[in-house]
Computed example of a mutant assay.
Amino acid sequence: METDLIYDDSKSATPSNPSQTLVLVGRTGNGKSAVGNSILGRKAFMSKLCSRGVTNTCQSERVVQDDGQIINVIDTPADSIEKEISRCTTIAKNGIHAILLVFSVRDAFRGDKEVLSHLQTIFGSKITNYMIIVFTGGDELEETLEDYLTPQECPPFLNEILELCDNRLVLFDNKTKDNLKKVEQVEKLLALVELVSKQNNSKPYTKEYFNELQVEIKESELTLEKQLAE
Rank of each mutant, 00 (worst) to 15 (best):
91 I>Q: 07
102 V>I: 13
13 A>S: 15
93 K>N: 09
77 P>F: 03
72 N>W: 00
86 S>M: 13
31 G>D: 08
214 Q>L: 11
108 A>P: 01
40 L>T: 06
55 T>K: 06
74 I>Y: 00
121 T>W: 13
131 M>L: 12
29 G>L: 05
49 L>Y: 13
222 L>A: 13
18 P>M: 07
71 I>Q: 05
204 P>Y: 02
40 L>F: 04
30 N>C: 11
182 K>A: 02
86 S>C: 09
201 N>R: 11
153 E>H: 11
123 F>N: 03
93 K>H: 10
53 G>N: 08
61 E>C: 08
8 D>N: 15
134 V>I: 15
174 N>G: 06
200 N>R: 12
68 G>R: 08
169 L>H: 10
89 T>D: 00
209 Y>L: 13
152 Q>R: 14
75 D>Q: 06
167 N>Y: 15
115 V>T: 13
37 N>C: 08
98 A>K: 02
109 F>E: 04
162 L>T: 03
65 Q>Y: 13
23 V>R: 01
137 G>A: 07
177 K>N: 14
174 N>L: 03
187 E>F: 03
84 E>M: 07
105 V>M: 02
67 D>N: 15
7 Y>D: 04
134 V>N: 03
171 L>K: 11
189 L>F: 05
137 G>N: 09
56 N>D: 10
33 S>Y: 06
125 S>N: 12
132 I>M: 07
213 L>E: 05
219 E>D: 14
51 S>K: 12
185 Q>A: 11
172 F>K: 04
135 F>Y: 11
225 E>Q: 14
49 L>N: 11
37 N>E: 04
1 M>D: 10
102 V>P: 04
110 R>T: 07
125 S>H: 11
95 G>N: 05
81 I>V: 14
23 V>Y: 00
38 S>Y: 06
169 L>P: 00
137 G>K: 14
5 L>C: 10
198 K>C: 05
87 R>H: 10
2 E>G: 12
188 K>P: 01
151 P>T: 04
12 S>W: 09
73 V>W: 01
111 G>Y: 03
40 L>D: 00
184 E>R: 12
134 V>R: 02
